[in-house]
Design a protein around this nucleic acid. Structure first.
Length: 554
RNA sequence: GCCCCCGUAGCUCAACUGGAUAGAGCAACAGACUUCUAAUCUGUAGGUUGCAGGUUCGAGUCCUGCCGGGGGUGCCA
């Protein structure tokens, strides 16, 4: 659609130049946009304004010249106007607008797909929580975001893989083991100092209690090192399973669970580090191995191997990203919490040091989530007195509302999550508003079946009966899906999907009020059932990308 | 100190990356149920886009400097 009009404009400009009514100046890329105001038509371009400054002639004059030379394409366009300072506004023919319904009918769930991604292979790595504790609410936001982004990019023609990186190696694991060890020995009645930076959460005590119940004091004879290792090996897989369970419950499925240990086991870390050393990108200083990240835009060089011989998290991360690149992804997207923001230049520098294009790595930094209940911020769980876990939130407000709320805002602004609102089953709650539109459509279709209404595909002439404003608005909005998908994919901004869903739902509800679907007029009924089915399909598609269910009845 | 993000209606946010009269939802106020789901709809009101400059045909958007909020600035992850 867009391309067709752009093509017409290009031809018109060429024609105007050859007729000499347009000065022969270079013309920038033609941009078409959907005007905010209805009076400005269905599409508009500012090309005359851009040309005007180069040609030093009034923009309106340029615009007139372009319109003058435009073919009158009556099939698609009914009106071309010059407006305001020199915009050219296009109005689509009603028949063309309604045709979207045939397209939806034909393509089904493929309607809205775009090929803008060109089949490029993209990996989205997200959540990647340390398996040392339950997921918290912030992880929920990244889960919803990463999953929806992967969905929408898939729709936009990318080949997307979802990956979870498991930090099952190093100091976090050690801390986890020592924390449990301490709680366990406490139960056994042995003296053991709780690690200074250990995990203080109640869940650690629960784990220790369970171990005590299962094993009694049978483990207490082990020396500290053995015991900690034993506890790590026993408990981190369980924690990981529980994390997987929570994510699954949210409807998030990963293609790959990538283990940090595996990197070490395969020798990837050593190999990567010696490679960097050989290339002269890493050097030894004061007993530690440093990567020359400062020569690639980082503030200073970073340590890969500490002077105590232990590799840093950064070391395995460099190896990990090398592995990602070697797997042949064209683009790798990492979703990190905003507190990792200082880590971005370091990682990008790491990419350069390895010899990869740092623009193949994109990092989305997500801002934090604040929960509100009764207008008051909530930080702690009433039940446990600790940070609210994702599972608790899912218990309270459900998966649909959680996912929808997590996705409502741009990832780079703070999210205020109103628990009371998310639970409300009323139109103030956007999840219910959108889902209700879908349920209402299902109800209409059930009724249609009940009264034996003819729901066969209408002819184009019958579809012409959809001529009122609510009907046309609805069709126009349906036609925007592909644009929305492309925007969300290219800007990595799936939150715009929620806005689109709400707009579509609002137009449907307005249509519902003004246009009775099942009536005595068989042709009109056919046309309207067809329209309503189109809306249903698009709502399903959008809710599907958001990971929110589309209920048949509510 | 330096770096990054944010600041738009009472509240939560948009604004298609520089376009036309800055838009939605909620809350407020006034209306609409012989109806395919009123879990809905219609209307009214609400603004010096944090402040001050600058760039140009045109700025919420770009540049500079302030102010306020958040995050970062480890041989932590």
């Amino acid at each position: 659609m867009r391309d067709v009009i752009i093509d017409l404009i290009e031809k018109a400009i060429g024609e105007a130049k050859s007729r000499g009514i347009l000065p022969n100046v270079p013309v920038a890329n033609i941009e078409l946009e959907r005007p905010k105001r209805k009076e400005h038509g269905d599409w508009a371009t500012n090309i005359a304004l851009l040309v005007a400054s180069r040609a030093s002639r009034p923009a309106r004059e340029i615009a007139e010249a372009i319109v003058e030379c435009m073919e009158k394409e009556s099939q698609i366009l009914t009106q071309i106007d010059v407006a305001g300072p020199g915009f050219i506004n296009f109005r689509l023919s009603p028949r063309f607008i309604r045709r979207v319904l045939f397209e939806i009918h034909q393509k089904g769930s493929d309607f809205g797909k775009s090929s803008i991604g060109g089949g490029r292979r993209v990996q989205v790595e997200f959540v990647s929580a340390n398996p040392v504790g339950p997921l918290h609410v912030g992880h929920g936001r990244w889960a919803a975001l990463g999953d929806a982004l992967a969905n929408v990019m898939g729709y936009a023609g990318y080949k997307v893989e979802r990956e979870f990186y498991i930090n099952d190696y190093g100091s976090q694991m050690e801390k986890f083991g020592r924390s449990i060890c301490s709680r366990y020995l406490e139960l056994v009645g042995k003296e053991y100092r709780f690690p200074e930076d250990g995990y203080a959460g109640e869940y650690i005590k629960d784990i220790a209690k369970r171990i005590y119940e299962e094993h009694g004091d049978a483990l207490a004879h082990l020396d500290e090192r053995q015991l900690v290792d034993r506890l790590i090996e026993m408990e981190y897989p369980r924690m990981l399973e529980s994390i997987k369970g929570t994510l699954k419950r949210m409807g998030v499925e990963f293609d790959v669970w990538f283990s940090e240990r595996e990197l070490y086991r395969r020798g990837d870390v050593d190999e990567t580090l010696s490679m960097l050393e050989e290339k002269g990108e890493a050097y030894w200083h004061e007993g530690a191995l440093w990567l020359k990240t400062s020569s690639y835009g980082d503030e200073k060089d970073r340590v890969l191997i500490r002077s105590n011989g232990e590799p840093t998290y950064f070391a395995s991360d460099v190896a990990y990203h090398r592995d990602k690149m070697e797997r042949g992804f064209d683009l790798v997207i990492n979703i990190w919490g905003a507190d990792h923001h200082g880590y971005v230049p370091r990682m990008k520098a790491g990419m350069k040091a390895l010899g990869y294009d740092p623009s193949a790595l994109e990092v989305i930094l997500g801002q934090l989530v604040k929960l509100y209940r009764g207008g008051e911020p909530v930080t702690m769980s009433k039940r446990t007195g600790e940070i609210i876990t994702l599972d608790e939130l899912l218990d309270e407000v459900g998966v649909d509302a959680s996912r929808y709320f997590f996705l409502q805002r741009s990832s780079d602004s703070h999210l205020d999550f109103d628990i009371d609102l998310a639970k409300k089953e009323s139109p103030e709650n956007p999840v219910f508003y959108v889902q209700y539109a879908h349920a209402r459509i299902c109800s209409i279709l059930r009724y249609a079946k009940e009264v034996g209404a003819d729901d066969s595909v209408p002819t184009e002439e019958e579809l012409d009966l959809l001529s009122t404003e609510p009907e046309m608005d609805l069709c126009k909005k349906l036609g925007e899906l592909e644009d929305v998908v492309e925007f969300c994919a290219e800007k990595r901004a799936p939150h715009r999907l929620t806005g689109y869903a709400e707009e579509l739902a609002a137009l449907f509800h307005a249509f519902y009020r003004d246009c009775r679907v099942i009536s005595d007029d068989a042709a009109l009924t056919r046309a309207r059932i067809f329209a309503v089915k189109g809306v249903k399909q698009v709502l399903m598609t959008v809710l599907g990308m958001l990971g929110v269910s589309a209920p048949e009845e509510m």
